[in-house]
Amino acid sequence: MALEKIKKKYSVAFELTNDNPLYTGHGCYMVGSFNNWSAEGYFVGSLPVPGEKLHFTLPDVEGGHLEFKLMREGSWQKCEVDKQGRLHDGYSVQVPAIGSFPLHTNRWRDEFAHSTASPQVHVLDEAFYFPSLGKQRQVWIYLPSDYATSDQYYPVIYMHDGQHLFDEALAPGRKGPVEWQVDETIDEAQEKAIVVAIAHGADVSDRFNTYLMDPYADIHAPKGKEYLQDIVQVLKPYVDLHFRTKPKRESTAMVGSSLGGLLTLYAGLMYPDVFGSLGVFSPSLWIGHHLNSLLAQRTLEERHAIQGQSYFFYAGEKELRKKDGKMQDSMVSDMLAFVQNFVTDFHSDIQVDIDPMGKHGALYWQKSFRRFYAWWHRKTL
């Protein structure tokens, strides 16, 4: 039996400067790829008084790309942030590193309001009923800042995983509470839109059950088809009735990531007369067993409708997919293979967006949503 190769490990030196006198003496912790982002963290020492420096070493680090963030007292609610109170991308060091890596701490998450949602985000219904799905889901709606003072009608984006779109307070994640900043993106844009965001289920199995179209693992009777049906036949008519929307397909989009990205792709193919633009982020294409048969079954009228749609496909070069129970194979290659066949067969308008440093997570979908929205401006608004 072959012996497993022992990976060489290194020590990485750091030099930390504290620019905020309010937190002198507070315990400072590091979390990152070295400890699988566990909030328990690695204690690096107490924050020094301004003008002094804290020198410390992180031991036993494998060679390669080290990513990390700083927090006080082992709490994501006390994580280091930028001057606006937003979680930043974090730090990265190539290991082995030469010399001491400089760190400058200033602002912390608990200095700012717990919620990061803009005033334009409202709860549409805490328990909107999806009859075919047989579930209640919280639904949020983002209304442009001039909605109450104008008579303007707006295009609409329907989005999955609503907890992660607007508010860090609702968006727990492996690398901290990162939200997509959908509201900030549209707040800053010249052209506005309404966003309808649907919460996912309370646990992982519920989310899988709702977003899958085909049986997978322990999910034998998924409800993705019913969920999409309820969006099209129940939620969208309700939104169009109660808000000033542009209801036609050229002004209606859907965006989702991972399983939600795959589900968004299915929504576009199943309802090409409803959704004119689809944002398909990091789609779990290896689970889409019936995509090809679904495409083959489209009627001539549906094929013409699909040809009139616009698709924005995003993936990161560092995203991996599961194969034989292990994380391997690039999601980009899966996506490009599907896109090539899709373009050949349907000639739809397609934009491919690949981030060379992109990984699977909200931080990268946050950035890709900004690019999607700028693209959607040009295509639709």
Rank of each mutant, 00 (worst) to 15 (best):
K9C: 11
Y10G: 10
F14E: 02
N18I: 06
G32C: 05
W37T: 09
G41H: 01
Y42P: 02
V44T: 14
V49E: 13
P59T: 08
H65I: 15
L66D: 04
E73M: 12
K78F: 05
K78P: 04
G90W: 04
V95D: 08
F112R: 03
A113M: 09
V121S: 11
E126H: 12
A127I: 03
V139Y: 00
S150R: 11
Y153F: 10
D161S: 02
E168W: 08
V178T: 10
Q181G: 01
E184Q: 14
E184S: 11
I186W: 01
I186A: 08
A189M: 14
A189D: 13
I198S: 01
T210S: 15
H220N: 08
D240M: 00
T245P: 06
E250H: 11
T252A: 01
S257D: 04
L259Q: 04
G260M: 03
G260T: 09
G260A: 09
L262P: 15
Y271E: 05
L278M: 15
G279S: 12
S284M: 01
H290W: 05
L291T: 12
L294N: 06
A296F: 11
Q297S: 15
R298G: 05
L300D: 14
Q307H: 14
Y311Q: 09
E317S: 15
K323E: 13
K323L: 13
K359S: 10
W376K: 13
